[in-house]
Design a protein around this nucleic acid. Structure first.
Lengths: 148, 148
DNA sequence: ATTCTTGCAAAAGATTTGCAGGATG
DNA sequence: CATCCTGCAAATCTTTTGCAAGAAT
């Protein structure tokens, strides 16, 4: 059950080299973790996943990789006030379905997002930029709550 | 220019007393900050706003109040992995419009949210619970970027 | 008066930074 | 082989918890 719902479509090595940065193990592993995860992750959770792959990679390097990726526009850092979560940049129309049971995250494309954008433009004086939709619930693989 | 876009509609004192908790200054101030803010806030930002009102309230009490409010269902704690933000509980259909310029947050009700819920139910095997929509952009009061 | 809550302080966890050695181009 | 990156460790900031004193009922 691969979780990757990300059409990654970004060659990390090319991106790094193009901008004069070096391709290193730490950066590759962090990128792999982000690509595989499919949803916003906090730095600590990214770090622990990175460690599962290669425990020799230091936490500080994870932070440095994330910061770099953000500068390159490869990941999006969501700052809800001052708490950060990170995920690979992806199209607006993809919304997040987060299963409360198993933590699995799916992406779902729907024209309702562009539609929502237009609705906002028409109904308000707000000029929308990014739209972030997150839905919690139960995925198809997790059994419905049995009556206790 | 009141920011409060929240139809609060909750009497904190009643909620507390009903459940056997005491009405204290700390709890009242934290509640006021949340009600006035209008969007997800992290604990540190809540704490600093609380301190602006009453510096004698300890940071630990802010955390304890938030935890209590969450248990009472008065606020919603959004956990994106392990980072938390808090806001007063409100109806699903209200989406967040966050101005990147001035930080102002507006709520906007739209039937597209319930519609989105139905669309998910129909198109996927995911059973949606809470839907959280956040839109960044520029509000009507902030001037469009002038060509540099 | 009773006991729930708070403030304080210390502990545990998250994030940033300086520096010397190691890997990359 | 020049220098970019990393690991380490220390510093800083966020969040949690124990305990005795202070408030709310």
């Amino acid at each position: 059950m691969a979780t990757s719902a990300y059409p990654v479509g970004v060659d990390l090595e090319v991106e790094l080299r193009t901008h004069g940065y070096r391709v290193t193990t730490a950066r590759r592993v962090v990128w792999d973790v982000l690509s595989a995860a499919g949803d916003h992750l906090t730095a600590p959770s990214i770090t622990s996943r990175v460690h599962a792959v290669d425990p020799s990679i230091n936490g500080a390097s994870v932070y440095r990789a994330l910061t770099l990726f953000a500068e390159l526009g490869l990941v999006r850092e969501s700052r809800y006030e001052d708490a950060s979560t990170w995920e690979p940049f992806h199209d607006d129309a993809a919304i997040h379905l987060v299963c409360s049971e198993c933590g699995q995250v799916m992406h779902h494309d729907t024209e309702l997002v562009p539609r929502l954008r237009r609705a906002i433009q028409v109904a308000t004086d707000f000029a929308p930029d990014e739209i972030d939709v997150r839905v919690s619930g139960r995925c198809g693989h997790c059994p419905a709550e049995s009556p206790a």
